[in-house]
Design a binder for these strands. Sequence first.
DNA 1: CTCGGCCACTAACATAGGTTAACTTCCAAG
DNA 2: CTTGGAAGTTAACCTATGTTAGTGGCCGAG
Lengths: 246, 246
Amino acid sequence: MTEEAFPYTRRFLQGRSRDALSDREKGLLEGLVDKVERFTAPHTILNRGDVVDQSTILIEGTVARVIHEDGKRHIVALHVPGDFVDLHGFALKRLDHDVVSIGSVQIGFAPHDRIQKILETEPTLARMLWYSTLLDAAMHREWIMKLERLSADGRLAHLVAELWQRLDFVDLAGENGFSLPLTQQELADACGTTSIHMNRVVKKLRETGVVDISRGQVTVLDKTLLKELGAFDPAYLYGRGPLKLT
Amino acid sequence: MTEEAFPYTRRFLQGRSRDALSDREKGLLEGLVDKVERFTAPHTILNRGDVVDQSTILIEGTVARVIHEDGKRHIVALHVPGDFVDLHGFALKRLDHDVVSIGSVQIGFAPHDRIQKILETEPTLARMLWYSTLLDAAMHREWIMKLERLSADGRLAHLVAELWQRLDFVDLAGENGFSLPLTQQELADACGTTSIHMNRVVKKLRETGVVDISRGQVTVLDKTLLKELGAFDPAYLYGRGPLKLT
DNA sequence: CTCGGCCACTAACATAGGTTAACTTCCAAG
DNA sequence: CTTGGAAGTTAACCTATGTTAGTGGCCGAG
């Protein structure tokens, strides 16, 4: 059975294949997905405060977790294909943030009662699902560190480095870049700065030969500079060793 | 059987008693703790990169999760009694941050093999443990929001409000304040600023009648101002309604 | 085609916060 | 009591970043 047999969860498995799963287990995981939807325009998929009875897995595209506060958008996490976006909703029930699509996305929905069943009968899968939410928390911690420590240039560099690495884990990173449908405003929302200042920073990184971000495409010009500027050490992603960012 | 019968996990249960547990389950949880240690001086209990085979629960005092990066300390989380500090170590195995004691602390250790056994046989407890790590992640997200959005005054106000609320959940908050053994340098490390600037901020909040932080004691002078300045909405703590901060 | 709106981009100015360098207060060790 | 170090405090100066106000380009709707 090839991996293509699991269209919804293939990248999830790629991204965190710490324990090898049997085909039976892979099938159970795939079976969590109940229905699939596509959103082509920016769309708020879930709202803060929503009581949820299903969780969402990102199959294709980009989604952000957003906290709105007096008119401002704050991106607290970004997701790449294969990520379980709100698995935490299973246990917390009520969401503490919005989930919004960026660009065109495809999303799978996993009803909580199916997840419940797996938790009760499949310890390996249960552990993998838990593990997945813990990875999220580890990324949150790194973002906290990055926000506490780095200035705007460093934050952007860190964000780019992290996304490149995470996309590489799921075979979606190019040799020297990746496509990223975020506007400068959204980059600013993720780095805790303003779009005006983000524009200055994007320009600076382009001119200093670190990275070029334009027309939805990220082109890494100098890996070493990027890593240094972003103080990026991929250990927190718990992956199988960095690939693109040697 | 009174709650005092569970000296190690009593506050853990207070803090997140979402599902009522039977005394049998409470006993199993209490039985996770293998040995207890006290540290009176500041002490690094666990180091980043450590491979762990036990997790730690905070029984008394304060501990911080810290990421050191070129000489600087970054506090990414603070813990109050009852918190499972590194439950995530159970699944991740390798720590992505240090765990350090602040002031005098008492800590319990729970070997991973005991946790493993509970996960396999006790779905309610398993879910509660998972829930506990998800709460951590929700707090991380709020910190990210706070760092992205608020200036130093607001960050400090938010930190104070959060800690007051969390201490209140475990009956350790006073009527108009709480004791907090953090130095201004450590407050700065948690708010992503410098100790010099933190000093300015502490002074300002004292003079504007918001909160007085001195000699290890926090005295809230005006709840409403504190909440506003820190943009604090306790929903993300998933508690049973705010008490001190109406 | 052309209009309206979003996005990228720029300039001029204001301010929060970083840096360096002091001095003071407190307290514990001797 | 004396000493030394850590914590708190302040001042002067400088830079990163926020704010306000605008420009021009692109693109989809009509």
